[in-house]
Amino acid sequence: MKSVVLLSDARHPVSGRAVLSRLEAQAIGLGTALGGTLTGLHAGDCEDGVQESLGHGLSALDILSLPPEADPVSALTDFLKAQKADLILAGRRGEGGFDSGLLPYALAEALGLPILADAVALTPGEATDTLVVDQALAKGARRRVTVRLPALVTVHPLAPAPLPFAFGAMRRGTIRRHVAEAADASTDPVEERPYRARPKLMRTSSATASAENLHVGPEPEEAARLILDYLESNGIRRYG
C-alpha cells in the first residue's frame, strides 16, 4: 500500500518555532502501523518543521516549493494525481495557514476521493483495497467504517501518541524538492489582526450553594441516595 501524509507549516505554540504538528506526527504513526510505503508531502516554504517528520517514522519527504501565501490545493492535487497514493492522511486541522481544516476536504473534492474524518485507528480491511477506519465519537464511542481505497483520512488527537523522535532517522531521511506552480489564494474580505486570547466559559459546578450540598455524617444509605440523585439531576448518568 502506498500512503502519503500531508504536512503543514505548524508553529510551536510557545516559541513560535517551526515544528511538526503533533496531529500529523500521529498520522505518521497510524500510517507506519499500516505498513507499505509512507512518504510525507508538504507544500510551502517551511522545511525546518516538516523535516522533523523524518525522525518520527517517515523515510522520505516531498516538498513542493510554494510561497507562503499561495493556495496549495492545486499544486497538491497535481502532485497527488501523479502519485496515485492509496491513502492520503492528514491532521484534522492543518496549521500555519487559515487553520480552517478545509484543505483535506478541498483536496478530496478535487481528487474525487471519499474523505473520513477523525480517525483514531486504521487497519487493513478483509478485502483488498479496503481500509477499516475507527472514528472518534464523544464519550469514547467509535464508529468503525470500512472504506474502499483510495481515500483521504484525517486524524483525531485521540489517535495513539506519535512515535518518539529519532534524530538519527531524521538525518538519514530523504528530502525531495519539487517546483510547483503557485496559485493565488483567494483574498478574504476579513480583517486580520494580532491574536487576543478571549475568556472561555468557566466550567465550575453550578452555583447551587455548596453549603446546602454539604452533608456532614449522613447515614451511608442516605449518602448513596444523595450521590445518585445528584448524578441523575445533573444529567451525568442515569441508573435503572
Partner: peptide, 21 residues
C-alpha cells in the same frame, strides 16, 4: 533515543518540549 526513538513515551514529552521551545 537518537537512532531508534525507543524511549518511554512519558520521557519523550520533555524531549519534544526541548525541541519545540
Amino acid at each position: 533515543t537518537l537512532e531508534l526513538g525507543a524511549i518511554p513515551l512519558k520521557a519523550e514529552e520533555p524531549l519534544g518540549h526541548y525541541r519545540g521551545c
